[in-house]
Nucleic acid binder design. Structure first.
Length: 582
DNA sequence: GGAAAGTAGT
């Protein structure tokens, strides 16, 4: 048994001699069709609701549990609602019934402070109202949301005491709670021990495995589901997509169609994202016609996905056509289009679209800036970069998104303002590995080799573990500083101490460093030891070294490789002619 | 009055 008996006792559960007082509600049918209550379902704001509330009081309905529970439900659950108002109404109710208690708990489970659902549940127990099978799904969802593993287990104890573990909804909620809290073994135990399994609880467990990246376990379960529904297919397809296994995701999608299960909008959202990331333009086009045939051309979730897919597959004009045709655009529409341009190195178009976005009074968010800042870096658009920095300072000051600040560091460094980059870096409260990397590379780029290397050791002091990108920065610092010995040391330390295998870029730095120092034999030996074929940049740096050291014959040999690899590259011909001239 | 999947970037 996973649940210790002591944990079950720490929350009170009262004997069920308490019971809810009978309400004085008039017949249900009369209430259900009452004009004040039909109005309630049409409310679109709290102001609407307060008017309806006044109606309810005037018509005397505020004495009925039915009307009050509807009122509470709107305030607690609707996106236009206001939980504090729900609580005010709740406090005015003499003997709230189970439904009303449950609705408040549900409201807390949806709020930003889901832990209050548990606190409210304790109040419910203390006031003598017994929880039922509706209470626990909300409660367990709260525990899943704020990773309250301990509370979740105690609540599981209550479920068992009340004998509600055979309720399908409670059962699935338990599995989901454990899965979301990362306790997959417990989720599995609940699932295995129950004779009650349906497609929903299968899917809850599958989603747990997917979130851990255990795709094989997930697939095994999926294959065991007696009757699969569209949600279970979607979960599995999106699982493959999330773990980068796009081909399997798309293969499963075609299996789904063969099984005659109709895809829904969510299916298409996932499939589009898999197409975008795997470059499957043909299937993406098919989804495009699926959307059109169903008249879903103004569904932003789908069309944004379609724009993203076209852009990532290189069909930028088609993407832009769809974007321009949109009647309504949300921030994601702008972001996918701007990001699409940047992704395909169409930086000028990205900048132009960003300017259009500002003129259209659309508000950019952090993702917009993550799409546009790399474009600023590549174009050296320092002024726009500065403007964005000021905008972020003004509107996103409290943002904990470290990648935003990292992007700013990178932008300043690449636009030549290393001092501003340092300022942003030093101003970051919580630095990430990426921000250290950006700063180290930035310093290296500007020839501040020793400062970069100092920062590298400071980074280690602060407990960050360097990755392959860190070493690209470190080696490039050595390269820019002509520090051959240090370069050799860092290169071998990377492999032996940090267990990072050398990539093309690392070899590129080293070969460039050795070549510039005239150590051609060592550079050649290193090249021969590479597992991968050297690219144009590697041959190019060697050719540059030949020019510096006037090595005509070697230069001809190197240039031959380069011409084969990059016949279009005019730089290679220029370098060779410079060698001859020298 | 209720449970499982589901957009943009790092």
């Amino acid at each position: 048994m996973v649940f210790s008996s002591s944990s079950l006792l720490s929350l009170p559960i009262l004997p069920s001699t308490f019971h809810v007082l009978p309400t004085s509600d008039p017949p249900y049918k009369l209430l259900q069709t009452h004009p004040s209550l039909t109005l309630l379902s049409k409310c679109k704001s709290m102001q609407n609701l307060k008017q309806v509330h006044a109606h309810i009081i005037k018509s005397g309905l505020h004495n009925t549990h039915f009307a009050l529970s509807k009122l509470v439900e709107f305030c607690a659950v609707s996106p236009f609602g206001d939980l504090s108002y729900a609580l005010l109404v709740f406090q005015s109710i003499e003997n709230p019934n189970q439904i009303i208690w449950n609705t408040i708990i549900r409201g807390f489970s949806l709020s930003s402070k889901p832990i209050q659902a548990v606190e409210f549940y304790v109040l419910m127990l203390l006031s003598g109202v017994e929880p039922n099978s509706y209470t626990f799904p909300f409660l367990l969802k709260s525990c899943a949301k704020f990773a309250a593993s301990h509370e979740g287990k105690q609540i599981h104890g209550h479920v068992l005491k009340l004998g509600l573990d055979s309720d399908a909804f409670v059962h699935t909620s338990l599995i989901n709670m454990y899965a979301q809290n990362g306790e997959l073994d417990n989720a599995r135990l609940v699932f295995d021990k129950s004779s009650f399994r349906d497609v929903v609880s299968f899917t809850a467990l599958i989603t747990g495995y997917v979130s851990r990246g255990c795709m094989d376990d997930a697939r095994h379960l999926f294959d065991e589901i007696p009757v699969r529904d569209v949600v279970s297919w979607n979960a599995m397809i999106s699982g493959y997509a999330q773990s980068g296994r796009f081909e399997e995701a798309l293969a499963l999608f075609s299996e789904m169609r063969k099984a005659n299960v109709s895809p829904n909008e969510s299916t298409m959202v996932v499939v589009l994202s898999a197409c975008a990331q795997s470059g499957s333009l043909e299937l993406g086009k098919w989804v495009g016609s699926w959307i059109e045939n169903r008249g879903l051309g103004s569904n932003l979730r789908l069309v944004n996905g379609l724009i993203d897919m076209y852009a990532k597959c290189g069909a930028l004009d088609t993407a832009r056509g769809l974007f321009d045709g949109l009647q309504q655009r949300d921030v994601i529409s702008w972001n996918v289009m701007i990001g699409g341009y940047t992704h395909k190195s169409h930086y000028k178009e990205a900048l132009a679209l960003f300017r259009l976005m500002l003129r259209s009074n659309a508000d950019p968010n952090d993702v917009t800036f993550l799409g546009i800042l790399p474009a600023c870096s590549h174009l050296g658009a320092l002024d726009l970069g500065k403007w964005i920095h000021a905008y972020i300072d003004k509107n996103f000051q409290s943002f904990t998104n470290t990648s935003l600040w990292t992007s700013l560091i990178d932008m300043y460094a690449k636009c030549g303002n290393i001092e501003a980059a340092k300022q942003v870096f030093n101003g970051m409260e919580a630095k990430s590995l990426a921000s250290w990397n950006a700063m180290i590379s930035g310093l290296a780029m500007h020839g501040h080799a020793h400062t970069a290397l100092e920062l590298f050791s400071k980074m280690a002091d602060e407990g960050f573990k360097p990755d392959e990108i860190t070493f690209v920065g470190v080696l490039s610092a050595c390269n820019h500083g002509g520090l051959v010995d240090l370069g050799r040391q860092y290169f071998s330390s990377m492999i032996t101490d940090y267990h990072i295998s050398a990539q093309l870029q690392h070899y590129g730095c080293m070969i460039d460093l050795l070549g510039r120092a005239g150590l051609f034999n060592e550079a050649e030996a290193l090249m021969n030891s590479m597992e991968m074929k050297p690219d144009g940049a590697v041959w190019g740096s060697l050719l540059g070294a030949c020019r510096i050291h006037r090595r005509v014959e070697l230069g001809e040999l190197v240039a031959k490789h380069l011409f084969e690899l990059e016949p279009e590259n005019a730089g290679a011909y220029v370098l060779l002619s410079n060698i001859y001239a020298g």
